[in-house]
Amino acid sequence: MDEKLNLDQHTSQKFNEELQDICTRVLEMGGLVEEQCRKALKALVKDKLELAEEVATSDHKVNEMELAISERCTDILALRQPAASDLRVVVGIIRLVADLERIGDEAEKIGRLVKTLADSRDRSKFRSETKHLGKSVLEILHGSLDAFARMDVAAAIETAAKDHDIDNEFESLTRLSITHMMEEPSSVKSLLRVSWCARALERIADHSVNICEEVVYMVKGSDVRHLSIKEIEDRFL
């Protein structure tokens, strides 16, 4: 069957508008979340305290968008009884906005951690590693939202496959940090916070992978949430 979802092809013009409205809102929410993550990373690697403060206190906007989108999805389920691809889009979006909201939470967490790191002399430890990790994570997040916007299965799978590198980077950063902590026990408190930031970044990538999996579900109708990337590639590429 044709892979296009044709969300604007219903007999009911109003239904077209409703479906497109939730998709647009998801992209707006995605844009906001992406911005939050970018600011959080900048605050982290450039010691921008005001930015950290901003990220730590503006998560409510993301939460409000999540509620608004969920409510619209519920309305569509109740009033339109969507089927087939329409149903998958609505169900996928309900799951996807939960991931976006969690990404917002992780950004907020980084903002708060940067604030607590402000006075530590160890705050700039592993900066280049963290920066690199952060940039790769932002790429995955961007790629997942892009795949959603275009309902592009190949792009979604390609993006999800990059998570493996993130895991490796995070792992090596953790190892570095443990070694350093053992050598210099006084740095443990700060380095733990730096590690938590790295952990938050790694979680953002995981949630982005979930978004990619939802894109596959919406377009292909297969729930691939618990398949390995290899299995997903074999099946759909």
């Binding site: 069957m1 044709d2 092809q9 219903h10 239904f15 087939a84 149903l87």
Partner: peptide, 18 residues
């Protein structure tokens, strides 16, 4: 049929597309 129809005509009908 209602979650993943295989034929485009089926999909169009059950989702109310022209």
């Amino acid at each position: 049929i209602f979650t993943m129809p295989r034929h485009e005509l089926t999909e169009n009908y059950i989702t109310g597309r022209f």
